[in-house]
Every structure is written in C-alpha cells, then in structure tokens.
C-alpha cells in the first residue's frame, strides 16, 4: 500500500520545509535571470557595441518610468489597450473553439470534416491574415485585432478540446453504459472532466498566441496608443529605449496572463497528474 495514502495533514515544520524546498526550486531560475540582467548592464556600459540598438537595462527602466503615463508613447495606456485586445480575442477564440470542439466530438461527420482542417490550419501561419482582418473590421477598431487573436487561438482550442472529449478510456464508457447512463451524464461526468486538462493546455498556448496576435496585428496599423504601434514608431524614431520598454511590458503581460491561467488550472484540476508533479 502506498505510504502517501495514510500521511497525516502537514504540520508546522513540514510546511516550513516545504517553503524551503520551494525556494530551492525557484532559486536557480531567479539567479539566472538576475545574472543575465546584470551581465547585460555591464556589457552595454563598458563595451562599445558600435551602434547596435541595445540600450542598457537601466536606460530601459528609465524610459519605462518616463513614458509610462505621458509623452508621445504612453506605454501604460498602450499596454492596457493591447491587453484588452488580446484577452477579448482569447475569450472569443476560446468560446468558438469549445463550441466547435463540442460539435466535432458529438458528431462523427463534423469530426471527419472539421478536425483535419483544424489540425492543418493550426500549422498555417495565420498571422499572415492580419492585414486582411484589419481591412475587414476597420484598422482603428480593436475588434480587428481581437479577430486576429481569436482566429489564432481558435485552432489549438478545437484540436485540444476535441481530443480531451474523445480520448476517454473505453472501459470508462463501458462502465457508464453498464449504469445505463444517459449521453448527457456521460458528457458531464466523464468527457468534460477528461477534457479539462486539455482545455487548460490550449488556454495556456492561447494566452501566448493572443499577445503575439494582438501586437503583430498592430504592426499593420491601428490606433497609436497600443504596444505594437509604440514599438514600430519608437523604433523608426530610433528611440530604442522606448521600444525595449514596450517589449518588456508586452513580455510581462504575456507571462502574467500565463501564470493567471496556470493558477486557475491549479484550483480547478488539482487532481490531474500535471498539477501533482513539478514544483514540490
């Protein structure tokens, strides 16, 4: 019998040592990050990079605080607008993806028709359609960026969620059949819980795609107070410190969205193997 089975609830000292283990787990990554920044600063300050557009981290931080809320490129406002497009698109794409996955899982014909298309489409660089989307929905309308994001997010959601709904153990279906369970019960009791880990995987992939989609969509035009426009305009004005500041804000937004989804995942599916491994 497994030892874990009878383990009592964590006492104070066990909780303490868990924190120590967590710190040891994250420490290397933090050290590498801080080390890289420090090295970057040192190199830029001390070596002549001959016009390479690489500002020092301290300059980027300066640009960030100077133009966060004011000036020609208000980065804070731009980030909020871009995040709005990214999250809106993520929501639309995820919703549509789940609906279509439900249909492909339910109807064999729909699956045979749509799934190969969806798998094929996820290999296509959909971002190439961005100028078209801008044209269809109006370049200044945030909806145009949301639709780019939605299309990007849609395919991985369809593919993953369909897989989650259908890759149920045959024995589980036989068990439910032996209970004379309705299709509805099988859906809610077996297929949906089985699909949740796949859904969160798709959502995490989607959150990364969403920011890429929004920012790249903005490269092709849009209202000026968005991250993509700030990056394009500051770069052409040779204000690389501002460009980098915008990139950093975009990166942090991406990481924060990803972590937020991972946190929700931890709460919703604590039973899944992916949530039991990794961080001690």
């Amino acid at each position: 019998m497994s030892a874990a089975a009878a383990r009592p609830a964590a006492s104070g000292s066990i909780a303490m040592s868990r924190w120590l283990r967590r710190i040891r787990w994250y420490l290397p990554a933090v050290l590498v990050f801080v080390g890289t920044i420090a090295l970057w600063e040192l190199v830029v300050q001390n070596i002549d990079l001959r016009g390479l557009p690489l500002p020092a981290p301290s300059e980027i931080a300066g640009a960030l605080s100077d133009s966060w809320g004011a000036g020609r490129w208000p980065i804070g406002k731009a980030a909020a607008a871009t995040l709005f497009e990214a999250l809106g698109g993520l929501a639309i794409g995820t919703f549509a993806g789940v609906v279509v996955a439900g249909l492909t899982a339910r109807f064999v014909t729909a699956r045979e028709l749509l799934l190969p298309l969806a798998i094929g489409a996820s290999a296509v660089p959909i971002i190439a359609f961005a100028p078209l989307m801008n044209n269809w929905f109006g370049v200044l309308n945030p909806l145009s960026k949301m639709m780019i994001v939605a299309v990007l997010v849609f395919f991985p959601v369809v593919v993953n969620v369909t897989r989650g709904l259908t890759s149920v153990e045959p024995a589980a279906l036989e068990l439910m059949r032996s209970y004379a369970a309705s299709d509805w019960s099988i859906l809610w009791q077996v297929r949906v819980p089985n699909a949740l880990p796949y859904f969160f995987t798709a959502l995490k992939v989607g959150s990364t795609l969403a920011l890429i989609g929004a920012i790249v969509g903005e490269y092709f035009g849009g209202s000026s107070d968005v991250l993509g426009r700030v990056i394009v305009q500051s770069a052409s004005a040779l204000r690389f410190d501002v460009t980098w500041a915008a990139i950093v804000v975009g990166a942090v937004s991406g990481i924060v969205s990803y972590l937020a989804i991972a946190a929700v995942e931890r709460i919703v599916i604590p039973w899944h193997a992916s949530q039991r491994a990794g961080e001690p």
Binding site: E169, P193, W271
Partner: peptide, 15 residues
Amino acid sequence: RDYGMVFQAPVLFDW
C-alpha cells in the same frame, strides 16, 4: 441496473 461491473483496470475517476 441489474449489473455491477469490475474490469481489469479499476477505472476510477481521478477528479
């Protein structure tokens, strides 16, 4: 519901 089934795998639901 006259049948109780037990398979070679336990088929328990992790959730």
